[in-house]
Design a binder for these strands. Structure first.
Lengths: 205, 205
DNA sequence: GTGTTATCTGAACGATCGTTCATTTCAATC
DNA sequence: GATTGAAATGAACGATCGTTCAGATAACAC
């Protein structure tokens, strides 16, 4: 009657099961659910249901719930830093700032769930996980701060407090994930352009 | 041996107990804990311990945990709208924008916990509570949007998309709560001034 | 086909959750 | 000082949590 994956009374390994499939699906399901409802509100059984598996099977892939969260956040931040490192910079501080702005908007709009988690779930990290992940976040901030300081030194920016300006710009840009929808009236390109307009003027000398 | 409030074996109403005291303390404790650890992670027993009472006593003051969250958020947003309504506006769109910016920074720095909750815990609201509270949040956004649109119409601002600009400015300003500490090197006045510098330039024609 | 390994089920564990309630004591009134 | 209502305790409820594990079955190597 059944051929694959929909046995009506499975008692053990199910047909078609594979770690190369279940592993990624677990991470995707967790990311989506954590972003939607928050880490603390999501149960392991919800994740398992989304994956299409019983809850015990999840522990073939993760040490525990906390480890799952930490892995998702670390992976996201490392991907963010690697992507920015590979991004072509423009000319001078102004070009670098434009590159950063457009990169930040684009990258974040492509991964709204991961961004949301990395930002909202810091307080749910165990101390031993928090330290390393917070350091990664800090490193990304420093990338922007370096650009702003260089521009300030070169006289193309007017920023009495580069640290504050860094945080202000990042907050402004990251906020895009809270409202942007692909079905909306603005394309991602256009949104990036509009944010760049505001950033450019805000820091201008 | 004991005089007040530290009976070693209390079995019922404790000495010094009063609803005018316990009620506010409950709300303060919940606000602090929700902001620090997140609504879903905080237990009623933690709140009770902070108040100095057993968990059952909390239900003399609240219908349930969800109602407590909704009340905190609604009260905060209503206070926000009332305070802005009572705030003196400056002259013209530019004056109004400066008034809004300085008000927003000041108000939010005075209540970091309430702000954090109103922003982070929207997804933990039951649908029946969400609608009304989201409407209040929206009304506050509209206050800024009206200012920006007026300035755009008057030609003092250059904003191709006022809706996007509204969200960008609010995100930038609200972000101040994530890093500002009173013990830091910048006064609240100075911070408000620095943010105003950036906002002013960002929207300028 | 046989044997080995990878993968999942089903059931259970103790802990903890939000909430309720009968009971007890304190505060207030007269 | 007796009476009444306000306020809190302590214990309990069923539900649900994260996690573990023995056993069962599919995938794969030979």
């Amino acid at each position: 009657m059944n051929d694959r994956s929909d046995n009506t009374d499975p008692m053990a390994r199910t047909s078609g099961s594979h770690s190369e499939i279940t592993g990624p699906r677990l991470r995707e399901a967790a990311q989506r659910l954590f972003a939607r409802h928050g880490y603390a509100s999501v149960t392991m059984r919800q994740i398992a249901a989304e994956v299409g598996v019983q809850v015990g099977a999840l522990y073939n892939y993760i040490p525990d719930k906390q480890g799952l969260l930490a892995d998702l956040m670390r992976a996201h931040l490392e991907e963010l830093l690697a992507a920015w490192a590979a991004e072509p910079r423009g000319e001078g501080p102004l070009g670098a700032l434009e590159a950063f702005t457009r990169f930040h908007i684009r990258f974040h709009l492509e991964r709204p769930d991961a961004v949301f988690i990395a930002y909202m779930e810091l307080r749910n990290l165990a101390p031993e996980n928090f330290a390393g992940i917070e350091a990664l976040r800090k490193r990304y901030e420093t990338e922007l701060e370096d650009i702003l300081r260089a521009g300030q030194a070169a006289g193309v920016f007017d920023l009495p407090d580069t640290k504050l300006a860094t945080l202000a710009v990042i907050a402004m840009l990251t906020g895009v994930t809270t409202w942007y929808r692909d079905a909306g009236r603005l394309s991602r390109e256009r949104v990036a352009g509009l944010y760049w307009d505001m950033v450019r003027k805000a820091v201008a000398a």
